[in-house]
Design a protein around this nucleic acid. Structure first.
Lengths: 351, 351
DNA sequence: TTTCAATGCTAAATCGTTTTATTGTTAATT
DNA sequence: AATTAACAATAAAACGATTTAGCATTGAAA
């Protein structure tokens, strides 16, 4: 059961392979192939279920129809895995396949990966970039290979990106805590100079400053073992007994925090209010349910892929910069409610 | 900055491309190329940072170095996303890239996907198979394309697979609940004839029968909307007020169950004991923490990839059947403890 | 001196497409 | 009758590698 080649079907029909190729690529009209022949070829191709050899096409055209999706860690993040899923699905519909890999937020690993793919294997990249790969991205763009940054961008280079309004949504989330009467709101984050992290912090600080509340920030180490971070967080909380609310910069930090809160036998929200950036399925289920800033996954994925396809199809050049910012959603749940007038699980859009 | 071809480096060195190819493929000795020339070529290749065009190699050799990983839903399952990550990493180390996609447990979608890839794009498949794709898999194997089934197998065909001992681990989990003094233990599952689901149910039934306890089973619909399943589960629990423990067949069913338990204001484990198949990060964090059967992800991934690589490297033929069964772990947490003698978060290996 | 084997390297075919340039027709115009 | 235009289809080169079969050269054996 060997696969048919275009040569086989040409021979079978007594037609040249050129003709077959033109017809299959929808150039019948343009190349003035007669309608009769076009139909004959199309029918036969359909009948014998012929599909072209993708590798040969890729070699000849220099286009692999492969998109590479590089996320921080596909396995450990609700947001990334959802986005990955969406992208994969939409790409398929448009005739593209998706190769994916995890960067671990490590610039060396990411550089390696890009280098590995450099040899025209990949038509386009979607990346949640660690800092330090600016040069590699510029090189790709210079070769007119599209790159879309997701979730964050790299301020030192000009590159298309899709992300949420981290500053505004963080501001609103903090404001929500303030409105609920929390006084000592700590911001728990990781040591990072990534744009989305900076913006979230700026949002928190701006809201606190505007209300004249004290700023209280603790930074953890992304690369440290989980137990170390939990311990750090615990001693921080013990050192600040007057704390009455915690704003976690990501959902995994919030997970660490919940572990600590639990071990200290604190009640949420009576003893401590809780709010997290990045919603997960856990937060809805947790007892009490956790208020979170949700990133609209569908919209983000749609925008990423649209930009990618438009660039691949030549509507834009890779170097053209399109930066899309999408409003995030504050989903208010039990963990942040002191004022009982606000209904459970209500949704508030920032903006 | 055009990419160098093997022709360029041959020309540059005044050597034929044949020679260069032999040397690059480690056949210098075999083809009796002199050591001096071998070194000269290798040094030059290193210096100019030449890498071969993957597409041309693929076209010529018929091997793409691409593995396709088809899981049920990459975005919504702790187990699958972890496995995906592991596979990706190990495959990379061995010079393979991973394409991934979600089957949605839909046989038509899965067939489509396999068909799409049929044209020697993919060297090997790792699949968590929906039922109904037996024929497609047999076809692949007949063409000597390796297929490894993961998480479950298809009883009607002969195919390599890697999965946990669903029957034994489910038996032990049930036995654990019985040992804790629970009397009316319900088994909450989805309507499915997949092997892993059947085996889990058989394990529950066997343990219950051996202790002379009543069997109580409720089946939900995987494809129904979540709200529908939650409602179903709620009315089931209301209809069985004497129920004192629930064994959930998967973690997402357990999530539905926790939502119901919460809405009924039942206390875990005082009013109802809870145990779930498939651990997630949620279960450790939940209050109270949830006892679960954990699948050893590392071991599963290792075995899958080892089988795949051994077949790709010709150590086995695709048709050779290797069925690997790995023991699962029962992680005992608060939700199933009545007998306070057992320590928290202790780990019991089945077998 | 011829024959043979070993050594060191290469020409050319091949994988399955796309695409450029070209060749025959026939019909219309000069 | 000769030129041109439009039409319909094709031959052959190219993409960049791998691999088969073979070509020179040298030294040793016959």
């Amino acid at each position: 059961m060997k696969k048919l080649s275009i040569r086989d079907i040409g021979k079978e029909l007594g037609v040249s392979i050129t003709t077959v190729s033109f017809i299959l690529n929808g150039k019948a009209k343009e190349k003035r192939i007669s309608e009769a022949l076009t139909k004959r070829v199309l029918d036969f191709v359909e009948k014998v279920n012929y599909t072209p050899n993708v590798m040969a096409q890729a070699l000849r055209t220099g286009k692999s129809k492969l998109i590479c999706l590089m996320v921080e860690d596909i396995s450990n993040n609700f947001f990334f895995s959802q986005v990955a899923r969406q992208i994969e699905e939409k790409a398929h519909i448009n005739g593209y396949r998706v190769i994916f890999c995890s960067t671990d937020n490590d610039k060396n690993k990411t550089r390696e990966l890009i280098k590995l793919f450099r040899d025209r294997l990949i038509d386009g990249y979607i990346i949640t970039p660690p800092e330090g790969i600016e040069k590699q991205i510029t090189n790709l763009l210079d070769d007119n290979i599209p790159v879309i940054l997701a979730d964050r961008n790299l301020p030192d280079i000009q590159c298309s990106s899709v992300m949420v309004d981290n500053y505004e949504s963080s501001f609103h989330a903090t404001q929500h805590l303030i409105d609920q009467g929390f006084e000592q709101i700590a911001y728990l984050a990781i040591e990072s100079t990534q744009t989305q992290m900076r913006d979230r912090q700026r949002g928190y600080e701006a809201a606190m400053n505007r209300s004249g509340k004290p700023i209280l920030i603790k930074k953890l180490d992304y690369y440290a073992p989980q137990s170390e971070n939990v311990a750090q967080l615990k001693s921080f909380m013990l050192a600040h007994p007057t704390l009455d609310a915690a704003f976690f910069a990501t959902n995994y930090i919030c997970n660490w925090g919940l572990e600590v809160i639990r071990s200290l036998n604190l009640r949420i929200p009576q003893d401590i209010g809780v709010l997290s950036y990045d919603d997960t399925s856990l937060f809805k289920l947790y007892n009490p349910s956790i208020t979170a800033v949700a990133q609209p996954i569908q919209q983000i994925s749609d925008n990423i892929l649209k930009l990618m396809l438009d660039t691949l199809n030549g509507k834009f050049r890779a170097q053209d910069v399109h930066q899309v910012v999408i409003p995030a959603q504050l989903i208010v749940r039990e963990s942040s409610i002191r004022n009982t007038l606000i209904p459970k699980d209500s949704t508030i859009l920032t903006q």
